[in-house]
Design a protein around this nucleic acid. Structure first.
Lengths: 251, 251
DNA sequence: GTACATTGCGTCATAATAACACATTAACAA
DNA sequence: TTGTTAATGTGTTATTATGACGCAATGTAC
């Protein structure tokens, strides 16, 4: 895969890559999709290169789709990372040898790469982590238990989460991370997890319903301990409207 | 200049550039610093290329500094633009001939360039627009009267303004765009200009002073029609604190 | 049936916001 | 000198949003 790209590197944007921070929500945990190639001892964000005949946004969709099999989900560019040493010695001589890449062609890879960060919000229940090769592991990992990552991927991840937190104040976000039917407590847990703080149950209900993007369904969650909570769905039309106009106008 | 870069293109990040949207405030107008090279019939955002031995943020500072002569100002990356055709045929054969660039070396330039957008907020009164060559014009232009721009620079400019508007709700912004001493009505005009809407004088005063970042000076603006308004300055310490924590917490 | 944890709905005090009234000030012209 | 004018400074009030609670209803487990 990588070798193919190197061999045909004139088909790819040089010195530029894409990394995706893919968020999912499960078991009251905000999870991140990470990958690990067998030989490496660190995990990475799923990423890829940019075909010269593709918009960068399209290339990001390709990466996301390749890893998760879903499309049409929330995907947003949030920052570009380009410190001089960010991939310094990442592909050292030994690695290139192992990958059977000639030194001359390896130059394409060993220079500084600037990477464009995208973050995605996906419905965990619809995703089947998809390794692109047999020597690769793809896994959902709780964002609080992310192991050491390669290069500056930790920085990228942190920035993505930071952006998500900020944008939570500007737009509702549950639509992308929850299944079609969900309960208010579930939505609240999502918010609490992202923001990493407790919210008052009753005030949360009031605020979230006042936005006017929720449909209360005539149905309760089944098979739960204690009182069965009501199920809700998003009113997609109103949701999109709010997304466009933003939540807090300020000033 | 451009020719130098082409001739030594191995010293620059290939296929990647930086464009700066430099905002200033003067005469109750939000202005943008634009440039025009003599031969071109359209204006451009000031931009540049990225030396391989410089962080992208550093390269952005260099561009800004080269054009305005100021440093230490507010500069923030806001988006990266990479549509396939964004610089399609920008440097056509004729242009390359005019610039005396050999076809082989011109390839470096004629491929798709992805550009990283930065926006800057500067104190208009301290800036002397600085052309880098005698065939170049640098000018402050009211953002409402921006002429046709090359490539997707209009899109970049719009996105920058959009970002600025959004961030106005998350952080105070006057510090960077106003001189050291200023009046509340001036600050309000700035806000109104950026947001493109009228604000109530009295409510604005209350909100802005409640933030706690303003020092009321024992001094009034002189040489002014009608009642002389009070002068204020920013409390840099509190300002930075608010910048760090954000204005509207939400949730 | 009873204990219990959780949900749903409501209350109240306080803070933030929007809309507006009125006095104050300084330049300018009669 | 004085009145006019257009701006600034300060205050008031009604409405809305927020934060901190109380309490009844519900379904599971024992």
């Amino acid at each position: 895969m990588l070798k193919d790209i190197i061999d045909n590197n004139e088909n790819y944007q040089p010195g530029l890559s894409i990394d995706c921070v893919i968020f999912g929500f499960h078991d009251n945990q905000l999870k991140v999709l990470l990958i690990k190639v067998e030989r490496a001892n660190k995990w990475s964000l799923p990423g890829g290169f940019i075909p010269v005949d593709q918009d960068i946004d399209t290339a990001a969709i390709t990466v996301l789709n390749g890893r998760t099999g879903v499309d049409g989900v929330f995907l947003r560019q949030f920052a570009t990372f380009g410190k001089v040493n960010r991939n310094h010695q990442h592909f050292d001589k030994k690695t290139l040898e192992y990958l059977q890449i000639e030194e001359e062609k390896g130059k394409w890879l060993t220079r500084r790469f600037v990477t464009i960060g995208y973050y995605a919000l996906v419905d965990f229940s619809k995703i089947l982590p998809n390794p692109t090769g047999r020597y690769e592991v793809v896994e959902w990992i709780d964002h609080k238990e992310v192991p050491e990552l390669i290069l500056d991927h930790k920085e990228i991840l942190d920035k993505a989460l930071d952006t998500l937190r900020t944008e939570l104040n500007l737009m509702p976000v549950g639509y992308n991370l929850l299944p079609e039917k969900f309960t208010i407590p579930e939505l609240q847990k999502l918010y609490e997890t992202i923001l990493d703080k407790k919210l008052d149950r009753r005030n949360f209900l009031r605020k979230i319903t006042n936005i006017g993007i929720l449909n209360k369904l005539d149905e309760k969650k089944s098979n739960v301990a204690h009182k069965a909570p009501n199920l809700y769905s998003f009113d997609k039309e109103k949701y999109d409207e709010v997304l466009k106009n933003g939540l807090n106008q300020g000033w």
